[in-house]
Nucleic acid binder design. Structure first.
Length: 276
DNA sequence: AATGCTGCCAACCGCTCCATC
DNA sequence: GGATGGAGCGGTTGGCAGCAT
């Protein structure tokens, strides 16, 4: 199948569109529509190929185009849809009213891809440090802290933190440490509030155990499949050397979380979580 | 002030899909 | 069924603006 000849005829303009050309195109499409892009420029009196006219209209001149920066919600949606659909920019654009595939493709390549790579690199680096630290601590007793999930999103009072200590003297956590964790700021309704729900989509999770490290805002995931997850974060202060820290967890429905150890890094402190 | 670098975005290129003949 | 051409899509690029040196 040969490529459609385009912009090969002598005399056709290329490059940036002028205001006058825009006005001619808008005026023509308002009057006659754009049933045939190939014949449109000739009939409209434009020295452009039909392909160029179509692109200009779709990406810039259409009246329903939303201009301006992408909102956080739009960026999150793009990331989620890209996980599901890959580089199918037109399909992603169809889910975001007023945004074009070209615009989404640009924001992905210039902003979102880099951000994700950075996040993945951070996760990878921290996982390596966690693994090394686990080996170091393998011979010592450690405190076992359990965070139970609420029975339902409305039952916030059931969010508890409990601990079992076999040998406080040998433990790396002091009683003040444990106490500070138990006096975490009260979790309000928004903590467990509904976030993004993806029908027929199960979050991609490692099967056995994992470490979740993230600075993202909390989301609650649910699906029509067997398993559901709640992605949430908590907060504790004055722990260990006095730094504040966030914890960020995925909780599988019907399970509790064992929190075997805490990581305290220079710039940010994360709680390392494994599902038991 | 001049130059170089980087990021962003509009537009182009080349390919595939699909309708029509 | 094959050829043709229009439309649409994703990858790539050129040019501009802003920033750093």
């Amino acid at each position: 199948m040969g490529r459609a000849p385009c912009c090969e005829k002598m005399g056709l303009r290329k490059g940036n569109w002028t205001h006058e050309e825009d006005q001619i195109l808008i005026s023509y499409i308002r009057k006659h529509g754009h049933a045939n892009w190939r014949s449109l420029p000739k009939q409209a009196g434009l020295l452009r190929c039909g392909k160029s006219c179509r692109l200009r209209w779709i990406n810039y001149l259409r009246p329903d185009i939303k201009r301006g920066n992408f909102t956080n919600e739009e960026e999150e949606t793009i990331i989620k849809l890209h996980e599901m659909l890959g580089n199918r920019w037109s399909a992603i654009a169809a889910k975001l009213s007023g945004r074009t595939d070209n615009e989404i493709k640009n924001v992905w390549h210039t902003t979102l891809k880099k951000r994700l790579l950075k996040t993945n690199q951070l996760n990878s680096d921290t996982k390596n440090r966690v693994s090394k630290q686990k080996i170091k601590r393998s011979d010592s007793n450690s405190s076992s802290l359990t965070l139970s999930e609420p029975a339902s999103s409305s039952d916030l009072s059931s969010v508890t933190v409990s601990h079992e200590q076999n040998n406080m003297d040998n433990n790396i956590y002091s009683s003040e440490d444990i106490e500070s964790l138990e006096t975490m700021p009260e979790i309000d309704a928004s903590f467990w509030s509904e976030g993004i729900t993806m029908d027929n989509e199960k979050p991609t999770m490692p099967s056995n155990s994992w470490t979740i490290i993230s600075n993202e805002l909390p989301h609650q995931y649910s699906s029509n499949s067997e398993e559901t997850f709640q992605h949430s974060f908590g907060y504790a202060s004055n722990f260990d050397d006095g730094m504040d820290f966030w914890y960020d967890v995925f909780i599988r429905s019907g399970e509790s979380m064992e929190l075997p150890e805490f990581q305290n890094f220079q710039e940010q402190t994360y709680l390392n979580v494994q599902v038991t």
